[in-house]
Amino acid sequence: MYGDLVNKLVLEAKRAQQLNESSKSEHLPMYQDDLVRNTLREIEQLKRDAELLKSQQELNQVEDKVARCQHFVTLLCMERNKRGLLAYQKLRSDTLDAMAWNKHGLDSVTALAAGEGADASLSHQEEEYLKDYTQIIADMKSGEFTDIDLSGSLTPPSDVFIDVRVLKDAGEIQTEYGVFNLIKDSQFFARQADVERLIQQGFLQRL
């Protein structure tokens, strides 16, 4: 059936979106290059069909409702495929956006490349997009908004000082406010603003 392939793409995108929502973290499944290519091929096929039908219609000069319907349905399928493809891509790029905001810049690229395996889940263009977008964010954050830290926490701050536990050994980490000597399994009582970065990067765990 026309549109089945693109259905698969849409389903996958939806699944990924729901997973991300429930786990509150962003993961991106592999880019389904084959499905996308097949869908595009289908569209081309449909296009050819549509043209064929159109030329047939012109030849016949008869108001053939069936033919017209065929033509119309073909157009609709093409549009549907296009919508599906765009939705798939847009959902992925939205996830990439969210990742870029949460993972503070270049960490995201390296994390994806290293973490999810050598066969990166991003297509080449998506990687470029991610790089560009992180640059945009970096520029956005600079200037008048530096103090505000736009990629900081979006939950209202509760305590000024919090307890955090160190999850990984990371030696000395220099933050803007001071130096933290991260020894695995030690506990800090420190200012929330100072450690928030480290919490987001996964070094610390808030208690």
């Binding site: 569209i43 081309e44 549009e79 263009q125 998506e126 945009i136």
Partner: peptide, 21 residues
């Protein structure tokens, strides 16, 4: 943002489409 998004969508999908789409 619009520029890079358009670039992404164009390069992956839209340029492979028939012209009217």
């Amino acid at each position: 943002h619009f520029t890079i998004l358009l670039k992404l969508l164009n390069s992956t999908i839209l340029k492979h489409m028939p012209p009217e789409l």
